[in-house]
Amino acid sequence: MEAVGLWQSAFDLMLGFSLFGLAWRMLFCADLFKSIVLFITFGLLMAIAWVRLEAPDVALAEATIGAGLTGALLMSAFAKLRTLDNSLKSGQPLLPRPRLHVINFWIALLFTVLLTGGLAYAVLSLPSHSPGLSDAVMSQLDSSGVTHPVTAVLLNFRGYDTLLEMAVLLLSIQSVWSMAGMSDAGEVHTSPVLNVLIQLLSPVLILVSAYLLWVGAHAPGGAFQAGSILGAAGVLLVLSGRPLFNLKKSWLIRLMLVAGPAAFIALATLTLINEGQLLKYPVANAANYILLLETLATVSIGTTLLALFVGSQTEAVQQDQSHQ
């Protein structure tokens, strides 16, 4: 047992320092493409760290959203940037020297070191044992409608936060559309191998998504993870040139984007009227309500992430500047 603990500690140390080292290389390397690749690697190592910290739900979210979709967004933006920016085109990916004067750089560094020291001191002053809210969560878990505590917190105990969270997602797509115009996906690469790969993978992804959604009630998983897998399946289909949706004006797609937040609001209003408190589910029906919310949220999250990816691929429409 002792030996296992030692190995685990060694692994933790290696993982922690790798994370820091990767972040350092990512942020201070002169090659943007390399930075993005390092970012994705960083995200995957973060996912391992979440597993080590007994947070498998966060690990799933990190791997799919943090590393996967953010990575896809960054790659797609970088490809676009390269067509816009000549300095990036010329093979040797660029970087202008740091703009700061050497002295300013050292001042910034000194400030960072001091801040790190202060924060580290504060962290180390925390008690080594603290129950947090774990007792409260565990004692109320039975009346939450689900047996997986993370899902209970997200969808029941702190469901109001998740409602606002869905509003943030809706805002993000509204924002990207209003900034970038609303045209369809741009360039498409097809290849027979990619097509076969996608034909095989997309049903599997959809199945995995449904599984994660279902399993979220009693094990790691849930709407955010399921939604991001669904979004990933969509991204693959779009990349292979499938005319998935006409994202431009589709009423259906708007409905899918709104479904999750709308379900939350409808249920909040319903419970406000019936129970007197927003998102207070009657214990007997809590499981059904949560499953309904999660299903619609999964659809919305998947569609939003896909639409963010497609939106970031599009050319910006020259905006009307008559007021400026």
Partner: peptide, 18 residues
């Protein structure tokens, strides 16, 4: 959460003129 919703929507509105 409300601060993030506020900040992101404010930025979106600020960029509207394009």
């Amino acid at each position: 959460v409300t601060l993030e919703l506020l900040g992101l929507s404010a930025v979106t509105l600020a960029s509207l003129t394009g």
